[in-house]
Design a protein around this nucleic acid. Sequence first.
RNA 1: GUCCCCAUCGUCUAGUCAGGCCAAGGACACCGCCCUUUCACGGCGGCGACGCCGGUUCGAAUCCGGCUGGGGACGCCA
Length: 466
Amino acid sequence: MPSVVTRFAPSPTGDLHIGGARTALFNWLYARRHGGKFILRIEDTDRERSTPAFVQAILDGMTWLGMRWDEGPFYQTDRMEIYRKEAERLLAGGNAYRCVCTTGELEQRREEMKARKEKPRYDGRCRNLPPEASMGKPYVVRFKAPLAGRTVVRDMLRGDVTFENGELDDLVILRTDGTPTYNFVVVVDDASMGVTHVLRGDDHLNNTPKQLLIYEALGYPVPGIGHFPLIHGMEGGKMSKRDAETSVMKYKEMGYLPEAIVNYLARLGWGHGDQEIFSVAELQGLFSLEHVNLSPSRFDINRLQNLNAHYIKEADAERLAALVVPFLNARGIDASPSPWLARAVSTLRERSRTLAEMADSMVYYFREKETDPKAAAKFLTPEIAPVFEEIAEAFSVLPEFSPAAMEASLHAIVEKKGGALKVHQPIRVALTGGTASPGLFDVMEILGREEVVRRLSSAAKRIRPG
RNA sequence: GUCCCCAUCGUCUAGUCAGGCCAAGGACACCGCCCUUUCACGGCGGCGACGCCGGUUCGAAUCCGGCUGGGGACGCCA
């Protein structure tokens, strides 16, 4: 029995969210750090909004980021019998009761409480209803929370947080249709799955005392509990699409590497001295709750981009070539992995922050791009046309089309013209359609002699028709 | 509104638990310079923060209180 068992328990009502991914990451790292077990549990008790497609999306996201779970995925919809039994136990022990209030009534009362500037919560109207009263009526089962006393959450990150029980609500544990709700199943599952450490977002801190009461009523041992802060958008507040893309897989589509995402997420709310770059193996060895920050951090795409650029620089050219292919395809380029593509990728890796940027920059390796008008006006001047033709001629008879040979040949031509001629930028514009590119001779080598000669000649013709 | 959490550069953070090593360090972004066939990369430099008030102390970013500010929760969602 491992001493540490953590879990990630998303509800399949959307793609794997950036915030969810970090919750998963912290749990996963914590388990790995302590030689423990990491469980994946799908909280699909909301039949209305849960879909198999979202389950798959979450699994895909986890897999892409490389977070392997040791057990599961468990589905709560497969465990209904367990919840029913436990709810029964609560009912029998007087820790739960049937409530026949309708959603309409509840909503109305909530509004009234808000109007009276009170904390809106269930008024306990059915707490002492005799069992017969619910006969033949639709009912929910509510947990009977104590009215007095206080409940202390011993948070592993924040210390003790005290709640007055009077502030707590009699929460619904079984819906009218008999399905269980979150605050109840999460306790039953964590206990029955042997979860030792519940690490989750701040937004659950207020739920915790209620859950603690359920642990107690059911006679379960209480696990270690910790709440870390949420990830905010740049404008503050829970991260939303208004700030940045929130779906993890969207970042894959935007050309981010999974190791960059993991590194970035790990550093959001956690740190280890001044270190910025962490491999997964390092994180697994270093992650600790003591260094998790208590205040929310903002999702800053600049930092992610910087990290992504770093990992693109480090990645194998072959791997990058394979990864960039779909991005090229999306741009209407029929590319496939090859040693040539790997060489092409190598010329761009130092100047691309994402695979999408890389693909954008690579277009001229595959087809002649339309020349940027400003660049053409500045560099494709009439005087340069004959020089292009001369270079094209010289290049076509070069014994070897190597960078050194090209450079020597080019140098000779410039010397012949008096040495003051600026040819690099004009050639770059003729070859790539713009003023920014990898080293000129690298570009020429990737393009190949034939294509270089062709583009130079065609540029010359365009400048000076006929 | 009620309850709960939080508070160091624009952003991520080191330092806070064990007060002096901090006239607060690193990184991203931004600006400048260098390198250079362009753009990048890289190097160097710059800008830039302990929210405020009070207390404890010889000494406070660090401890305590208040204020202010930010955030979260208040569902038959999770």
